[in-house]
Amino acid sequence: MDLSDEVVELLRENARYSVEDIARQTDSDPSEIEAIIDDLEDEGVIKGYRAIVDREQLDEETIRAVVELNITLDRETSYDDVAERIAKFPNVESLHLVSGDFDFMMEVEGDSMSEVSSFISNKVAPVPEVTQTVTHYVMTTYKEQGIEFGDGSDDDRLSVSP
């Protein structure tokens, strides 16, 4: 694994590592690490830095949904064309071309189920290539981007033994 790959892996593990932390862990010079990070950002390898938030711990309620999209393409339109159009909507948190029974998997957020439903029916479904949507509302998140939520001791069911 080259140094750039090591830097990427360390930042994926914890984006708050300082340049000095990464340099120490890779036995490198901090100026070299800083240059690598700058290059990765300039090349678009690193797109941004975000906190992983346990939304259930917040007072505000955000509704999240995973939406399956089926697409029918014509000769002039590609999956990339459809994805580019759908990804521009601010409610869309992620959009993936996938294999299987549907074409795209989209994650959306809104302030209410009504807002999410309205967004899907008024903005996504009318896209000419979209032939079907199936919406799954997220009830509880147990793990996101490799980070587990909760401490695992929330099971208050009584043990039953024969």
Results as ranks from 00 to 15, higher is better:
residue 108 V to M: 00
residue 99 S to H: 12
residue 76 E to H: 05
residue 161 S to H: 04
residue 97 L to F: 08
residue 5 D to C: 08
residue 97 L to C: 00
residue 112 S to M: 12
residue 147 I to P: 06
residue 148 E to G: 02
residue 117 S to E: 07
residue 9 E to D: 14
residue 41 E to N: 10
residue 83 A to C: 11
residue 35 A to Q: 07
residue 7 V to C: 03
residue 153 S to R: 13
residue 87 A to M: 07
residue 12 R to A: 11
residue 156 D to F: 15
residue 82 V to T: 02
residue 73 L to G: 02
residue 3 L to W: 04
residue 2 D to H: 11
residue 158 L to Y: 15
residue 77 T to K: 04
residue 14 N to Y: 08
residue 47 K to I: 14
residue 84 E to N: 15
residue 79 Y to S: 04
residue 148 E to T: 11
residue 65 A to T: 00
residue 22 I to M: 07
residue 155 D to F: 09
residue 87 A to W: 06
residue 55 R to T: 07
residue 108 V to I: 00
residue 66 V to P: 01
residue 140 T to Y: 10
residue 138 V to H: 06
residue 155 D to Q: 10
residue 81 D to I: 07
residue 151 D to F: 15
residue 80 D to E: 14
residue 135 T to F: 00
residue 138 V to A: 08
residue 35 A to C: 00
residue 112 S to N: 11
residue 15 A to N: 10
residue 107 E to T: 05
residue 78 S to G: 04
residue 31 S to A: 14
residue 75 R to C: 03
residue 52 I to G: 07
residue 78 S to K: 03
residue 55 R to A: 07
residue 83 A to L: 09
residue 53 V to Y: 05
residue 102 F to A: 09
residue 116 V to Q: 01
residue 113 M to D: 10
residue 48 G to N: 05
residue 69 L to K: 09
residue 130 V to F: 03
residue 96 H to G: 06
residue 85 R to T: 13
residue 160 V to H: 12
residue 41 E to W: 12
residue 121 S to F: 00
residue 78 S to W: 01
residue 15 A to M: 07
residue 31 S to V: 09
residue 11 L to H: 03
residue 65 A to R: 03
residue 39 D to P: 08
residue 55 R to W: 12
residue 119 F to S: 01
residue 131 T to Y: 13
residue 86 I to G: 01
residue 43 E to Y: 11
residue 36 I to Q: 02
residue 63 I to N: 10
residue 20 E to P: 10
residue 131 T to S: 15
residue 146 G to E: 04
residue 8 V to R: 09
residue 152 G to Q: 09
residue 151 D to R: 15
residue 60 E to T: 14
residue 10 L to V: 00
residue 146 G to V: 05
residue 53 V to L: 07
residue 22 I to A: 02
residue 123 K to T: 01
residue 77 T to M: 07
residue 117 S to C: 03
residue 103 D to F: 07
residue 135 T to N: 07
residue 132 Q to P: 14
residue 86 I to D: 02
residue 17 Y to M: 01
residue 60 E to P: 09
residue 155 D to L: 11
residue 30 P to C: 12
residue 161 S to N: 03
residue 157 R to S: 10
residue 34 E to W: 08
residue 116 V to T: 03
residue 17 Y to F: 01
residue 106 M to I: 00
residue 8 V to P: 04
residue 45 V to Q: 06
residue 22 I to P: 02
residue 118 S to A: 08
residue 51 A to Y: 13
residue 134 V to L: 13
residue 67 V to Q: 01
residue 75 R to K: 10
residue 66 V to N: 02
residue 135 T to R: 03
residue 155 D to S: 11
residue 80 D to P: 06
residue 48 G to L: 01
residue 2 D to G: 15
residue 30 P to D: 14
residue 133 T to Y: 09
residue 76 E to Q: 05
residue 162 P to C: 08
residue 143 K to L: 02
residue 64 R to I: 03
residue 131 T to R: 14
residue 122 N to E: 03
residue 117 S to P: 04
residue 26 T to E: 06
residue 57 Q to F: 12
residue 39 D to W: 10
residue 101 D to G: 15
residue 98 V to A: 06
residue 1 M to K: 13
residue 156 D to A: 14
residue 9 E to Y: 14
residue 46 I to H: 05
residue 123 K to A: 01
residue 77 T to S: 05
residue 76 E to W: 04
residue 19 V to T: 08
residue 89 F to C: 00
residue 64 R to M: 00
residue 50 R to M: 13
residue 54 D to L: 08
residue 109 E to D: 15
residue 15 A to K: 12
residue 12 R to T: 08
residue 156 D to R: 14
residue 61 E to K: 15
residue 159 S to K: 13
residue 132 Q to K: 15
residue 48 G to R: 00
residue 134 V to Y: 13
